[in-house]
Every structure is written in C-alpha cells, then in structure tokens.
Simulated scan of single mutants.
Amino acid sequence: MPSPSAQPVFRFAPSPNGLLHLGHALSGIINYEMATAEGGRFLLRIEDIDQTRCRPEFERAIFEDLAWLGLRWEEPVRRQSEHLDVYAAALERLKAMGLVYPSVMTRGEIKAAVVAAEAEGEPWPRDPDGTPLYPGRERDLSPDQQVAIIASGRPYAWRLDMEKAVKHADASLAWREMGPSPASETSLVAADPAAWGDVILSRSDAPSSYHLSVVVDDAEQGVTHVVRGRDLYHATSVHRLLQRLLSLPEPIYHHHRLILGPDGRKLSKSSEDTGIAAFRAAGYTPADVRAMIL
C-alpha cells in the first residue's frame, strides 16, 4: 500500500495499435486532473508489447492527441518494448516457484474441449469476460515433458497455475477501490483471481502478457494510483495476485465509467468516428471534447 506521505503517481498507458478514441480521452484526462489536483506526477506509458499491431505512427498520434487535449507528462516516456528483460526476470521468478507451465492447446482445441463437455451436460467455467477457462491438461507434466513441449517447435504460452498460485499467496487478497478523487473514501474489494483460471503470462511469440507487464511497470514506475476503465475492474484480481507473488507494492485503484458506442458496447480503436483526431479535424476544440465526455 502506498505511504500516505508519498507523492501520488498516476499513469496513462495506451497501446499504439490504433488511434485514440473518446474513451482514451476520458481516461487520460481523469488521470491528469487527479494528479494535478493532488500535486502528484503524471506519467505516460506506451504499452507496445504486441509488435505485430503496434506502429510508430500510432505512437506519434498518441502524443499529438494528448498534447492537443492539454495533457503534459514527464519525460522520458516508458515503452514496454525497451524493458523486455524486466518482464522475463519476473517470469523466471514465477518459474522458480513452480507456478507456471507451458501450454500448447490452440483456440480450436480449447473450443472442441468445451463443446464436448457441454454436449455431455457439463457446464464449462468461464472467466468474468465470458471466455472459457483453459483446460490445463499440461498442468501436471514433468520438467522433462515441459522441456519437450518447448523443444517441439509448437507455439506455446506460459500460463499461471492458478490453484498453486492462490495457495502460494497464502492469504486472502483484496484491493482498495477509491471514489472519483484521491481524497475519496476507499472501499476494500475482495479479489477472486481463481475466476480467471490459468491466465497467460507470456507466449513464444510475445515476451509478456498484459497482466504480467502492467504490474511490473507500475512497480518499476512507483505508481501509487491506478486509474483505468471499468472493463478492467475484475482483472485487478489477477494483478493483486501477481503483486503478492512477486512482492510488488499495492497501488490504490479507481475504475471509472466507460464511454459506450451507439450499440451499447465500449468504444474500440476501429471506431474512427469517435477518434480524437477525427474530432480535431472536424473543427472541435479540446473544450468541446471535454464537454462531451466529462
């Protein structure tokens, strides 16, 4: 938990895999205004682990859009692609604890397992996002069998053995959820990481997952307040577990409302009509955008 006397540190962490939309504007502005109100620091982090989708032109657009909105951040900006060794070290720690295993089931194989089970009348557990939990058939393989999987050349992922990890944490987990300002009262929310099953921490084609890199980044940057969209509320359970396992500091959290599109779903980067750049090009001012979302 952050020290009451510590200077608050907030961060906004977009991925450069598309243009920012109004939902990003809301999150960035909330973080910036909370940091400013508390005399804290505001950091910008570029989450560019996925090198197949992240592009330099989108990163430049992020800087341009946020500056146009009036946000100012500390330099240098942290880019995840420049810290792969740090994520690898965190994964090695979890391996040394015996809490991860290599998995090779494809999406098609997982779907087939789910369909077969449900055809027999056995309901398949799903995570809070509605995705079927991983079957975990490789969970109990011997070290030699795990080495053979990796040497086989098949694409694989390192997954957290959730049951072992929860037992290793050896205490109930919770996080502190605050209201719309750092001065708001906080409530204690019980974490339920087991609801997510054996989450991916790394893949053979990607050095780190969102879950692993975000908790490492927040600790490395001294983030005290994690302010992000409500869509990540339940994922906080996994993050609290990883923080406990890796002996990382516990930030305070605030999950703000989402801006929804006409179809009732949260905005995506493919929705160009709600992009910040599109509003700017149409003659809107930063004040106009703020009035639309705040």
Rank of each mutant, 00 (worst) to 15 (best):
Q243D: 03
Q243M: 06
Q243I: 04
Q243W: 04
R244G: 02
R244H: 03
R244F: 01
R244E: 10
R244P: 07
R244S: 08
R244W: 06
R244C: 08
R244Y: 03
L245Q: 06
L245R: 06
L245C: 07
L245G: 05
L246F: 08
S247W: 04
L248N: 02
P249F: 00
P249M: 02
P249C: 02
P249H: 03
P249V: 02
E250Q: 15
E250H: 14
E250C: 04
E250A: 12
P251E: 06
P251H: 01
P251C: 04
I252F: 12
I252N: 10
I252A: 10
Y253A: 01
H254R: 07
H254S: 03
H255C: 08
H255N: 09
H255P: 09
H256C: 04
H256N: 00
H256D: 01
H256A: 00
R257V: 13
R257I: 12
R257Q: 15
R257Y: 12
L258H: 11
L258G: 12
L258V: 14
L258D: 14
I259N: 05
I259Q: 03
I259V: 09
I259H: 01
L260K: 09
G261A: 14
G261K: 07
G261N: 08
G261C: 05
G261Y: 02
P262A: 15
D263L: 08
D263W: 08
D263M: 08
G264A: 15
G264H: 15
R265N: 12
R265F: 08
R265K: 15
R265V: 06
K266F: 00
K266T: 07
K266N: 00
K266R: 14
L267K: 02
L267R: 05
S268N: 02
S268D: 04
S268Q: 08
K269N: 07
K269Y: 00
K269T: 04
K269M: 05
K269R: 05
S270E: 09
S270F: 01
S271A: 14
S271D: 15
E272C: 07
E272L: 14
E272K: 13
E272M: 12
E272N: 12
D273F: 06
D273L: 10
D273V: 09
T274N: 08
T274M: 11
T274P: 05
G275T: 10
G275H: 15
G275Y: 06
G275D: 10
G275C: 12
I276Y: 07
A277H: 07
A277W: 02
A277Q: 09
A277G: 05
A278H: 09
A278Y: 04
A278P: 05
A278G: 01
F279T: 02
F279I: 06
F279W: 13
R280F: 02
R280Q: 06
A281G: 07
A281L: 09
A282D: 13
G283P: 12
G283Y: 12
G283A: 09
G283T: 03
Y284I: 08
Y284T: 03
Y284M: 13
Y284D: 11
Y284E: 11
T285S: 15
T285I: 13
T285F: 14
T285Q: 13
P286T: 11
P286E: 11
P286W: 11
A287N: 14
A287I: 11
A287M: 12
A287D: 15
D288H: 15
D288Y: 11
D288T: 11
V289M: 14
V289P: 11
